[in-house]
Write a protein that binds this DNA or RNA. Structure first.
Length: 260
DNA sequence: ATGCCCGGACGTTCCGGA
């Protein structure tokens, strides 16, 4: 089972490019973030032509997540359902071929200390509680998406430049660590122990050309799936503009599992 | 110290992104 996670920065602006990538790579499960459209505007037909079923949790202009799969998605859940009045569409979960898939778009956080920053930290706390209430570290589980946190300095090309931002500030890293400590393994780090690998580059200079990258997109799994993870990677070629096809500011990340 | 580049929208400038 091949799983990909990709913050596409508008599915309507990106769907031809995403389609081409899916056609070439044939992942079994596709977790998308930042759809920036309502459910009714999602390009279902384009993806169904490649054989994908689409579970969508959209929102006008902002946020929005979706899980695409060849196999029928079961027990689809949108949002945390934790009683908090939160209109932001940032999480969707589904069971695909016996594997629970959780697709997340973690809040950006704005400036450290702002209301958005507090929302981000609170959101991480809600995620930990949600995992505790609805998931089990012994089950086959994928928790992936745009976490908007670079876990360590060697996940950042220029750590001094980013140190005190919402991507790197210690309270955010601590919040992410509490999610991982619940019982998850970073599939990319299983296969790449060295630094210097990134999944996001700002559109603004120095950006991709200046390699001012951060590794803020992750595919975490429970230990039973980690044992089955044969390979993981980041397709940085997809961060490059092509004629008539602009790139998202995020590259797709993927993990391959050998499961029956 | 700030903008740079993008996408979306009650659009012709703004907000949010990370």
């Amino acid at each position: 089972m091949k799983v990909v996670s990709w913050n596409v920065n508008s599915i309507r602006a990106r769907y031809d490019r995403v389609l081409n990538w899916l056609d070439a790579n044939e992942p079994d499960v596709v977790c998308l973030q930042e759809l920036k459209c309502q459910d009714g505007d999602f390009p279902y037909d384009a993806f169904s032509s490649l054989g994908y079923m689409c579970s969508v949790y959209g929102q006008k202009s902002y946020n929005g997540v979706a899980i695409l799969s060849f196999d029928e998605p079961k027990d689809v859940v949108r949002g945390f359902g934790d009683g908090v009045d939160d209109p932001q569409a940032r999480t969707i979960a589904a069971t695909i071929d016996g594997v629970r898939i959780v697709d997340l778009y973690v809040p950006n956080g704005g400036k450290v200390g702002s209301d958005k920053w507090r929302y981000k930290l609170t959101w991480y706390d809600r995620l930990v509680r949600w995992l505790g209430a609805h998931c089990d570290p012994t089950q086959p589980l994928v928790v992936c998406g745009d976490f908007n946190i670079a876990p360590e300095d060697f996940d950042v090309a220029r750590p001094d430049r980013w140190r005190d931002t919402a991507m790197c500030a210690q309270p955010g890293r601590d919040a992410l660590a509490r999610v991982v400590d619940w019982g998850l393994v970073d599939t990319f780090r299983q296969h790449h122990t060295e630094g210097g690998h990134y999944s996001w580059w700002d559109y603004r200079p120095p950006g991709f050309k200046g390699n001012d990258g951060l590794r803020i997109d992750q595919i975490y799994v429970t230990p039973s799936l980690a044992e089955a993870c044969a390979a993981a990677g980041i397709d940085i070629e997809e961060r490059e503009d092509r004629p008539g096809s602009k790139a998202s500011d995020h590259a797709p990340i993927w993990a391959d599992f050998e499961i029956d």
